[in-house]
Structure formats: structure tokens, C-alpha cells
């Protein structure tokens, strides 16, 4: 290949990385092998330092999650606010792309010499847990739950006890009862093995999710030939379509049977319960986010309004 881009992902190939794999395939096809995306799972950087690597120019493309380091990318953390009410991967994709296109967001990421290419839409987090299932909000009192960042705050708001530990210790902590519940997206519940010992899961708590964009090094993007750049940028929609259909297909299709085969009880909350939860959490979290990020010089209110205005439309 004439042009090789190194792409820094982490973990292993999974539903969460299929859009990048697809993008590599499409780019190679469209350029007749002239441009190649060389995907590395963890070999080039630690996931929390992927933005640093982009900024340095060590690799040309990377994926990261906004919640790993709020101060690095305050603008996109708006997408991680609790109880936004995003209901599908398609909607998550749409709102992410609109927010990514906002000039203030692009300026925020340009500090890292990064250009936002596409989101990695994830479904809402939900809890898998052991012991007595929390059937009402009041049952959350004292529940030890592994939840970080915004979802941790949401848990604290209903008097649960957010407990911090690295994702690799989660399985054992749940097995051992150090925490009684874990908040993850379905694919992570499966890959971190919480479904092995879990007894119940919340189907519709939907407290929020994480936002994990794929970015390119701005200079490298500018240095591409016209043909290569068109091949890259022109393949993004198709890659995302593919990602969503695989996630909805493979992961979500496997999720139900996994729950059934492991004998995990599904807990659903009534509308009143959810409304009460949302009221306790969403408003204060949004207000705090707007205040913090206005102080950082972002048009926080505008971003928040832009986002909430799109939801459900």
C-alpha cells in the first residue's frame, strides 16, 4: 500500500469495533489497495491515551470514550448525561453526528489535532446484579454498584453506593459479592462475564451510555490524496450502517437467549418509577454539566438544547 494509516483500538475485535474494521475493508477496496488501515488492538497506546497519540501524530486514527477523561473532551460528554431518553442505536448515531458537527465541539477536539469521523453508538447501560433485585427505587438504597462517571452519579442520587474498580476486576467483584450490581452495555456484560453469575438485569432503567468517537489526526487527513480522502470519508455512512446492523443483529440477538440460558430474571420498571428516577437524577446532572462547562468556556446551554431538542424527533 502507498499510504498506511495506523489505527489504535483496544481489547479485541468485537461488535464495538466493527465499523472500523468495515471502514478498513471499504477503503482498501475503493482505493484498490493503495490506502490501508492497519488496525491494532492495544499495541499502539493505552485506551485512555489514544487522544494523546493522535495529538502527537504517532498514529492516524483512534477510538476512545469521552467518559475516560472528561477534561480532555468536555464538549462531547454532553452525550453521556443521564436519562437523555435516547431509544435506539440509530438515534444515538444521529444525535452524536449532529453534536460532532457543532463548531464548538470541533474546536474542543482540535486541541488534540483530532477530527471527529464517526460515533460508536452504544445502547443504554443497564444493571446486571446478584442478590435481591431492586424492584422499586427505594430498593436501591445501599445497593453496591460498579458504575463510574455520570451513571455512578445517577446511582448515588437514588442512595445506591457506586463503587469504583477497574473493568477487569468487575467479574470477580460481582462473583464475590463485593458489588451487587454492575452497569454496562449488553456487549460488555457478555465480554466481562457479569452474565455468568448475575441473577437479574434491569431491562429499561436506561440511565445513560458512554460516547466513544472514532477520530483522525487532522494533519494526516489533510495530507491524504483527494481520492484516498474521498474513499475514507465516503465509506463512513456504510461502515456505520454495517456497525448498527451487526450490533442490533449479533449482540442484541444473542442478549435475550443469553439471559434466558443463564436464568437471569428481567426486571422492568413502571412509568411512574422511571419518572421519579429521572426527576431525581436528570435535572440536577444537566444543570451541573451546564454550569461546569460554561465555566470552561463552552456554549454548554446551546449544546444541551441542541441535543435535547433532537431526541424523540
Amino acid at each position: 500500500a502507498e499510504t498506511t494509516w495506523n489505527v489504535s483500538l483496544w481489547g479485541k475485535r468485537r461488535a464495538f469495533t466493527e465499523h472500523v474494521e468495515k471502514l478498513a475493508e471499504l477503503v482498501s477496496e475503493k482505493t484498490n489497495g493503495e490506502m490501508k488501515l492497519n488496525i491494532s488492538y492495544g499495541g499502539l497506546s493505552k485506551n485512555k491515551e489514544n487522544l494523546d497519540g493522535i495529538s502527537i501524530g504517532a498514529f492516524e486514527m483512534a477510538q476512545f470514550c469521552a467518559g475516560y477523561h472528561r477534561d480532555k473532551n468536555p464538549s462531547i460528554t454532553v452525550l453521556e448525561l443521564p436519562f437523555l431518553g435516547v431509544s435506539s442505536l440509530e438515534e444515538e448515531r444521529k444525535v452524536s453526528q449532529v453534536i460532532y458537527a457543532h463548531p464548538a465541539v470541533q474546536k474542543d477536539l482540535s486541541r488534540w489535532n483530532a477530527t471527529l469521523l464517526m460515533p460508536s453508538p452504544l445502547p443504554q447501560y443497564n444493571l446486571v446484579g446478584v442478590g435481591d433485585a431492586p424492584k422499586t427505587l427505594a430498593d436501591y438504597k445501599g445497593l453496591t454498584v460498579r458504575a463510574t462517571g455520570g451513571i455512578g452519579k445517577a446511582m448515588a442520587a437514588v442512595n445506591a453506593v457506586p463503587t469504583s474498580m477497574s473493568a477487569t476486576e468487575v467479574r470477580q467483584a460481582l462473583d464475590g459479592g463485593v458489588v451487587k450490581a454492575v452497569a454496562f452495555a449488553p456487549h460488555a456484560h457478555m465480554s466481562f462475564g457479569t452474565v455468568e453469575s448475575g441473577k437479574w438485569w434491569t431491562t429499561n432503567l436506561n440511565p445513560g451510555t458512554v460516547n466513544c468517537p472514532v477520530v483522525a489526526n487532522t494533519d494526516a487527513l489533510a495530507a491524504l490524496s483527494e481520492a484516498n480522502r474521498n474513499a475514507l470519508l465516503g465509506s463512513i455512512d456504510e461502515s456505520l450502517d454495517y456497525y448498527i446492523s451487526t450490533y442490533n443483529g449479533k449482540t442484541m440477538d444473542a442478549w435475550g437467549p443469553t439471559l434466558t440460558s443463564k436464568g437471569i430474571e428481567s426486571i422492568s420498571y413502571g412509568a411512574d418509577e422511571l419518572a421519579a428516577f429521572k426527576e431525581a437524577v436528570a435535572g440536577p446532572a444537566a444543570a451541573a454539566w451546564i454550569a461546569d462547562n460554561t465555566a470552561k468556556g463552552l456554549p454548554a446551554q446551546e449544546l444541551y438544547d441542541l441535543l435535547t431538542g433532537m431526541i424523540g424527533k
Partner: peptide
Amino acid sequence: GGDAWGTPT
């Protein structure tokens, strides 16, 4: 058979 007391760390 009860809860582990914590994490290895």
C-alpha cells in the same frame, strides 16, 4: 460460600 471481602488489591 459468602461474599468475598474485597478485591485482591
